[in-house]
């Protein structure tokens, strides 16, 4: 904006208008989009991983069952922060290791030289010459995979519990009608399990919303990073000097997170009502009476 050229001459409302539209503030506003995008992309991947994990645990093939057991128990047992530090680094180095083997087979120097992890320039992921947004998108994808793996394990356990909570009589009825195990699973067990799994999945979603600040551990600049950065006291080295304003920035985040929680509650309440229709649960019976 034209009037923002000389911030030191601004006062009152104009100062605020210019201050709140600096490049740094725009990065702060954009980071809300990053967080929402992460949530929107992670949730479906978590459901797919969770469903596969739960199916693996129910499988009649032992190795598949063990795999499901190992996945849900190991990932749930490891502290999140360790997982978030380990998975992206391991994946990043794994990808670069394979690219190095494929693209630079004639480089003889070892990849591990003391503390250094050295791959040839062509094997860098993304390439050193790539624009910064590609580096950020790559970091974001690694973060997405890490989030999906962790939350997928919890979702697998929740869905497994949901599957087992479907009354045995329902499944037996299906069998009595001559359905195969496969048909019983897809036509009776799966449609009925959601209402049992939903409270657990709601919890997971809430925890996922609150876990997004972990993004910064993975090098993605999220809303908490920018709030801390913008709120910190600024000397006259900066165009808009101000004392410590972190309290106000964090209060704004508080409102944002509470709004997310409130909106999610609304959606989940509607979903629960919808799924309870015709179910032999307390919720389902209650709907029958009022209807």
């Amino acid at each position: 904006m034209e009037m923002c050229a000389d911030p030191s001459s601004l006062e009152g409302i104009n100062w605020w208008m210019c201050y709140l539209t600096t490049g740094k503030h725009q990065a702060f506003y954009a980071s809300f989009g990053t967080v929402l995008l992460l949530l929107a992309l992670t949730a479906p991947v978590v459901m797919v991983l969770g469903f596969s994990g739960a199916m693996a645990r129910k499988s009649s093939i032992p190795p598949l069952r063990w795999l499901g057991m190992i996945y849900t128990n190991v990932v749930r047992g490891v502290p999140d922060i360790i997982f978030f530090l380990f998975v992206p680094i391991a994946m990043d180095q794994g990808i670069e290791y394979f690219r190095h083997r494929v693209k630079c087979p004639d480089v003889l120097e070892p990849i591990r030289q003391g503390n250094d992890f050295v791959v040839c320039t062509a094997a860098k992921m993304p390439l050193g010459s790539s624009p910064q947004w590609m580096h950020e998108a790559y970091g974001f994808s690694l973060a997405l995979v890490a989030f999906a793996l962790v939350f997928g394990a919890f979702a697998a356990n929740t869905l497994y519990g949901g599957m087992n909570a479907v009354p045995r009589g329902q499944l037996e009825t299906g069998e009595a009608f001559g359905m195969t195990q496969r048909q019983v699973f897809w036509r009776i067990q799966v449609p009925q399990m959601w209402v049992y799994a939903l409270p657990g999945l709601t919890n997971l979603w809430m925890i996922l919303i609150k876990a997004t600040p972990l993004l910064f551990l993975l090098g993605v600049e999220d809303i908490v990073y920018w709030a801390r950065e913008l709120g910190g006291s600024k000397t006259s080295r900066f165009a808009y000097p101000h004392p410590d304003w972190r309290l106000y920035y964090f209060a704004f985040l508080l409102v944002f997170y509470l709004f997310m929680t409130w909106a999610s509650e609304k959606v989940f309440a509607r979903l629960t009502r919808k799924l309870s229709h015709g179910q032999a649960t307390l919720g389902g019976e209650a709907l029958k009476v009022t209807a």
Binding site: P7, T22, G23, K24, Q26, A27, E229, G232, T235, R237, F238, A239, Y240
Partner: peptide, 14 residues
């Protein structure tokens, strides 16, 4: 990017 005057992120975000 947090240690003025050595290095910091200015108001333009750079």
């Amino acid at each position: 990017g947090a240690y003025p005057p050595y290095n910091f992120i200015n108001d333009a975000g750079e």
